[in-house]
């Protein structure tokens, strides 16, 4: 996944050049290029079907693509997928799942209780089979798993989908802390423009015809969003 940092500008952690992706013979992304600065927080937005999830999968190396994706050397990625479909009676507890990650190591994995604290999961919840957790609890467990690998970059595909409001606040705040105090680079897909406004340093808006990137102030305007979404938007308070 991580490749040489030759030609890569010093402050960048990710370079995407002329990325195109075919999915079921449909072209989902066409000629997409962008850079992500180390320590930044990039929000990926766009209408359904614009290729947000596909982009995440290409970034973690789970999907074939044309073009080039380069991570700075030494990059460790923590990934949180969109909701997973698990059977309720799977006899794997939250602890089993997190300990599996810590034992795989990589870079002296973090401590299980610390990552549980970070995402706000109690020991009682971590002892339950993962199939019995609520959507929000499971999503937070996935976040804890991503953090247990001591990542330098987090790729989050709608991390707060299915999480209740207080839980969302908690997760977003935890992310902000990691981003600001520990210098983690965060790439996250979101539908909530208020969250994008508050937590991102830059925004990548994927559209069916064109994509645009910039700081939230310039991207999250009525005119610019009108084009990729194809319909006028009502602005939400930040």
């Amino acid at each position: 996944m991580s490749s040489s940092s030759r030609d890569m500008s010093a402050g960048d952690v990710l370079e995407v050049d002329h990325l195109s992706i075919l999915f079921d013979k449909n072209r989902v992304l066409t000629d997409l290029s962008f850079h992500v600065a180390r320590g930044s927080s990039l929000a990926i937005i766009g209408p359904n079907g614009a290729g947000k999830t596909v982009l995440c999968k290409a970034l973690i190396g789970s999907m074939q693509f044309e073009g080039r994706i380069r991570w700075a050397s030494g990059t460790r990625i923590g990934y949180v997928p969109q909701q997973l479909d698990l059977e309720r009676d799977l006899p794997i507890t939250g602890y089993d799942f997190l300990r599996a990650r810590v034992k795989l190591g990589g870079s002296g994995g973090a401590d299980v209780s610390r990552v549980l604290d970070l995402v706000g999961i109690s020991a009682d919840v971590a002892r339950r089979p993962i199939g019995t957790l609520s959507g929000g609890q499971f999503q937070r467990l996935l976040m804890a798993f991503a953090l247990a690998g001591n990542p330098t970059v987090l790729v989050l595909d709608e991390p707060t989908a299915g999480v209740d409001k207080p839980g969302q606040e908690q997760l977003n705040e935890a992310l902000r802390r990691l981003n600001e105090t520990e210098g983690l680079t965060v790439l996250f897909v979101s539908h909530e423009l208020s969250v994008v406004h508050r937590y991102s340093t830059s925004v990548l808006c994927l559209g069916s015809n064109q994509s645009c990137m910039g700081p939230p102030r310039t991207i999250l305007t009525r005119d610019l969003l009108h084009d990729p979404y194809g319909t006028p938007l009502s602005e939400r308070p930040a």
Binding site: I77, F97, A100, L104, G106
Partner: peptide, 20 residues
Amino acid sequence: QRNRLIVMLVSSDIARTAGI
């Protein structure tokens, strides 16, 4: 291999990012 097998059965995408 049980730790790798556990992570892979939850999600192969996550497993890849864990270096499996």
